[in-house]
Design a protein around this nucleic acid. Structure first.
Length: 303
DNA sequence: CAATCTCGTGAGTAAAGAAA
DNA sequence: TTTCTTTACTCACGAGATTG
């Protein structure tokens, strides 16, 4: 662990111990091995979350926004667009970033080829897709072979069961969700207003509706909304870890708190725990998922 | 010695079934 | 009706087994 994290680690360790004495027993970390492994996972998760926040404030080369350039990066492209006031394009790029993820070998090649329309013009910008999603759908079906490039392309780890065949349907469904000519920021602003500007309530409301979008299950929905919040596109933040329908994080939560609890009970307990630790629900969700894979020994998440 | 097939694994989404 | 659990399905990948 890095020296600068040591203080934070000992504070979290202490808070965990206090919580398990004062508030609720945490059988999964009664031994120091387990507790230390969890603390390290929490530190790692904090680092990942803070990386996205910092990225939103850092200098970014314009080449990151150009799908014709090998340096293209959908997340950085989203930030650039937002800075230029192109909010719909920014949200669309976050969606694409989540939908495809980064392949360990192929990197962003899927997003790059699709967003950049395989070098043709115009690119598949939000303006193009929103007006005619059916045309995008057709283009996707026609160009699957050109987009694919063996081992040098593919979906990211979290999206490994997706396929190019389904992308058209997914995108069509997402376009219906945004419902142009309504803009993304109108949708998010309405969600916030509906809940008096409460970032958590707005998140919960958006989560429920986005979950109905095709090919956007629990993980994609949660990650997309978290990213929108972290980049500051909209003032929202996860209200709970949303363990309903989860696999890894739910297993982790049951290991930590107790096997006989339902996802919604665990959501509430973890909300309380997160407040005591001073960490957000994405950190809780992410760290429990990684911890659960190896509860008694810290293993960094790679992928 | 390949090339191909066949599981098993891992971590998602969707839908059906069960419970509250 | 909503929530939770279970089951099925998807896709890439690697290890072994099978085939040519």
């Amino acid at each position: 662990m890095r020296p600068r994290d040591l203080d934070r680690a000992s504070a979290i360790d202490k808070a965990l111990t206090e919580y398990s004495i004062d508030s609720r027993n945490l059988p999964g970390i009664s031994r120091p091995e387990e507790r230390h492994a969890l603390v390290e996972q929490i530190i790692e998760s904090l680092r990942r979350v803070e990386f996205a926040r910092r990225l939103g404030e850092s200098d970014i080369s314009p080449r990151r926004g150009d799908p014709a350039d090998a340096m293209f990066d959908p997340l950085r492209a989203a930030i650039l667009r937002m800075r230029q006031g192109e909010t719909d394009e920014a949200y669309w790029l976050v969606y694409l970033f989540i939908y495809f993820g980064r392949h360990p070998v192929g990197g962003w090649s899927y997003v790059r080829r699709i967003y950049g329309a395989l070098g043709a013009r115009p690119w598949w910008t939000w303006a193009e897709v929103a007006v005619n999603p059916a045309q995008f759908c057709e283009w996707m079906l026609d160009h699957q072979a050109d987009i694919r490039d063996g081992a040098r392309s593919g979906f990211g780890n979290h999206r490994k069961y997706e396929s190019l065949r389904k992308v058209g349907d997914g995108v069509e469904s997402y376009v219906r969700w945004v419902a142009p000519p309504r803009a993304h920021d109108e949708l998010f602003a309405a969600a916030r207003e509906r809940h008096n500007g409460d970032p958590r309530a707005a998140f919960g409301y958006l989560y429920k509706s986005l979950l109905r979008v095709d090919r956007f299950g629990r993980v994609a929905t949660f990650d997309y909304l978290c990213m929108v919040g972290k980049l500051g596109f909209s003032q929202i933040e996860p209200d709970t870890p949303h363990l309903g329908g989860a696999t890894g994080p739910l297993r982790g939560a049951r290991l930590l708190v107790g096997a006989d609890m339902s996802p919604s009970q665990l959501d509430q307990i973890l909300l309380d725990l997160g407040a005591k630790l001073g960490v957000g629900m994405q950190v809780i969700e992410d760290s429990l998922c990684n911890w659960q894979k190896s509860p008694n020994r810290f293993r960094p998440f790679r992928g």
